[in-house]
C-alpha cells in the first residue's frame, strides 16, 4: 500500500517544527518503525530517529504516532493510518536531539542510573543456602519484562509538571530489585526511592498503568514500593519522613475515629500543631468564614470501635506474617 509519512524535522525542541512528507510503498502489516527505516535507507539518510531491536524488546523506538505514544516496531502502518497519512512527532518530556530522535539518557537512563541498578547478591539460592522459588520470582519477572519504552512516563501526571520526577519507568526498575529475593540492598533502595521526586511524589492516578503497552502495571509497582517502605518502617529520606508523618496521621485518624479528620491530618502532615497549624491558618480561617469547617473536635462515628478492632487484628495478622 502507498502512504505518506509527515515527519517532524529539525534540531532540538525550541525551533519551529517543520514537517517533511515521505511517500512509501509497504505491506499493510509493516511496522511504522520498519517503514521509517525504509524511508531512511531509500530516500533520506539524514532522517534521525531511535530504534534498535525491531521486535518490541528494547523499547527504544517510541514516537508520537498521530499524537499517540506508540512503540513503533509493534504498530503496523495500517493500524496507524489516519486520512491516508501518518504523522510522526518526537515524544513529549524528553529533549529532542534531531527530528524525532530523543535524548534517551536524559529522558530515562540518568533516572534509572541514579538508583544503582543491578542485583547486589545476598547469597540466597547460591550453594544450596536458600532456594529461590518460582513463586518468589513471579512478581519480579513481570517487572523484568519492562522494556524501558517510557510510555508510562509520557502519560505521567507528575512529569507533566515536574521533569525531575523519577517517573514510573525508573521506579519500576527499583521495584524489580527491591522485590528480588536475591538482592541484599532492599532497605537502602527503598530509602533512595523515598527521596524527593521518588515514590512519595507519585499521585497514584493510574495513568502509567493505563499507558503501559506491556501490562507491567507500573502504578501498582510504585504502590508496592510504598507499602514495602511502610512495612520496613523506613523513615529516613526526605520524602519518606514527610510521607511517614502523613501516613501516621491518616492511620491514627481512621484508627481512632473510624474516619478521616482532613483538617487535623493536614496539620500533622505539615509538621505538627505549630508548624502545620500556621501553614493551614489562612485556609482554615477562610473555610471557617464560609461555613466549610468548624472548630469542634472531630466526633467518633458509631462504628469507630469496630474499625479500631480491625486495625488491632491487622497488626496481629501482619506480625505473624512478617
Amino acid at each position: 500500500m502507498e502512504l505518506t509519512f509527515n515527519v517532524r524535522r529539525g534540531d532540538g525542541r525550541t525551533k519551529d517544527a517543520t514537517y517533511q512528507a515521505y511517500h512509501v510503498d509497504v505491506e499493510p502489516e509493516t511496522s511504522v518503525f520498519e517503514a521509517l527505516v525504509k524511508v531512511r535507507e531509500e530516500q533520506d539518510g539524514t532522517l534521525a530517529f531511535r530504534g534498535n531491536c525491531a521486535v518490541g524488546f528494547c523499547g527504544d523506538c517510541t514516537m508520537l504516532v498521530n499524537g499517540r505514544q506508540e512503540v513503533t516496531c509493534l504498530t503496523t502502518v495500517s493500524k496507524a493510518l489516519k486520512d491516508d497519512a501518518i504523522k510522526i512527532d518526537p515524544i513529549p518530556y524528553a529533549p529532542t536531539v534531531k527530528d524525532v530522535m530523543y535524548d534517551a539518557k536524559r529522558f530515562i537512563w540518568d533516572k534509572v542510573n541514579s538508583f544503582s541498578p543491578g542485583v547486589v547478591f545476598n547469597g540466597a539460592g547460591w550453594g544450596g543456602a536458600q532456594a529461590v522459588t518460582d513463586d518468589d520470582l513471579r512478581p519480579v519477572r513481570r517487572a523484568m519484562r519492562c522494556t524501558m519504552c517510557g510510555i508510562c512516563d509520557q502519560g505521567c501526571t507528575v512529569i507533566d509538571v515536574n521533569l525531575d520526577f523519577k517517573g514510573p519507568a525508573a521506579l519500576t526498575k527499583v521495584y524489580r530489585y527491591v522485590f528480588d529475593p536475591r538482592d541484599g540492598r532492599a532497605k537502602e533502595r527503598v530509602v533512595e526511592a523515598g527521596e524527593t521526586n521518588g515514590v512519595w511524589d507519585c499521585v497514584h492516578c493510574w495513568e502509567a498503568s493505563d499507558h503501559c503497552p506491556f501490562d507491567i502495571d507500573p502504578t501498582h509497582r510504585i504502590m508496592d514500593l510504598r507499602d514495602r517502605s511502610v512495612r520496613l518502617g523506613v523513615k529516613s529520606g526526605t520524602g519518606n519522613r514527610q510521607a511517614a508523618r502523613h501516613y501516621n496521621a491518616f492511620e491514627r485518624s481512621v484508627e481512632n475515629h473510624g474516619w478521616l479528620d482532613e483538617r487535623n491530618v493536614a496539620i500533622q502532615s505539615y509538621g505538627g500543631l505549630i508548624k502545620g497549624g500556621l501553614k493551614m491558618m489562612p485556609t482554615g480561617l477562610a473555610a471557617l468564614r464560609r461555613g466549610k469547617a468548624n472548630l469542634l473536635p472531630h466526633p467518633k462515628r458509631p462504628g469507630a470501635s469496630a474499625i479500631k478492632a480491625l486495625f488491632a487484628r491487622y497488626r496481629e495478622v501482619t506480625r505473624t506474617e512478617r
Partner: peptide, 23 residues
C-alpha cells in the same frame, strides 16, 4: 451507612483498608 469506616483513600495499605471496606 453511618457506622462504617473511611475507605483508606489509597493512603492506607490495602492490607488494612480491604478489611474496612469488606465490612
Amino acid at each position: 451507612l453511618t457506622d462504617v469506616g473511611c475507605s483508606g483513600a489509597g493512603v492506607l495499605t490495602s492490607e488494612v483498608s480491604d478489611p474496612i471496606n469488606a465490612r
